[in-house]
């Protein structure tokens, strides 16, 4: 399973590196969400600083939908979809590989967005490890849940429009817990932040396990 996951993740990341969809579409989109949200909130520095964690995670959430859609667009053709089913790759390996590739892209995106909110909103992280752990856990959960719902909608003609409707409500706990953990990391309240990690960790574990178990039937149904 792990070997298959590495194979699929390597393939997806190589395709992404060549097509540069994440670089030229997902990243600018996330930065636009940040900037436009800042315009909507007004120029007050205190308002922007208070809203920064929420806006950061909102941008990451929307980008998750785009990255997931892109991950399944790679396999959208009849040939590649059948090819993957006939390849001999364990479906759990396909799930983990796709989730890992999405997670890598999301994590890189978060690094850029982190720089973005530092410059645009003038915020500074006081507890860096807390923000990093929150990001890692949230990214695992976002990628796993995104790939599960991506597979669920992959066979539908309306997959581009149905995916956000399906996945955004499911990801709401990550938005909430991620924002609160980052608020705590910005203000230096470690114990508050750690309590929010206790939501992010089970979310990630549950969706990774569900994906490993259910990806095979989802792939067949698509």
């Amino acid at each position: 399973m792990w070997r298959d996951a590495l194979l699929v993740a390597g393939k997806d990341l190589r395709i992404e590196a060549r097509s540069r969809v994440a670089l030229w579409q997902v990243l600018p989109f996330a930065l636009l969400v940040l900037v436009l949200s800042a315009f909507a909130l007004g120029p007050g520095p205190s308002t922007l600083r208070a809203a920064a964690p929420g806006l950061f995670w909102l941008a990451v959430l929307f980008s998750t939908v785009l990255a997931t859609q892109r991950s399944f667009a790679i396999e959208a053709g009849e040939g590649t979809r059948d090819g993957l089913r006939l390849s001999g790759i364990d479906p759990a390996g396909v799930f983990l590989g796709k989730a890992a590739a999405v997670a890598v892209q999301l994590f890189v995106l978060q690094v850029v967005l982190w720089a973005g909110i530092t410059v645009l909103f003038g915020v500074r992280l006081h507890v860096v490890w807390l923000a990093v752990v929150a990001s890692l856990l949230a990214t695992a959960g976002l990628a796993a849940a995104g790939v599960i719902y991506g597979a669920l909608s992959a066979g539908l003609r309306v997959r581009e429009t149905i995916l956000p409707l399906l996945v955004l409500p499911i990801l709401a706990p990550v938005l909430l817990a991620g924002s609160e953990a980052w608020s705590a990391a910005l203000s230096g309240h470690v114990s508050t932040g750690v309590s929010w990690l206790r939501i992010l960790a089970p979310f990630a574990v549950v969706y990774v396990v569900v994906g490993i178990v259910l990806y095979g039937p989802l792939q067949e149904a698509a």
């Binding site: 393939k11 190589r14 395709i15 060549r18 097509s19 790679i74 053709g77 009849e78 040939g79 590649t80 059948d82 090819g83 993957l84 006939l86």
Partner: peptide
């Protein structure tokens, strides 16, 4: 299986 659509990834 070699179907109508080849199981290939365009970017690779």
């Amino acid at each position: 299986l070699l179907g109508h659509a080849a199981p290939l990834y365009d970017e690779l």
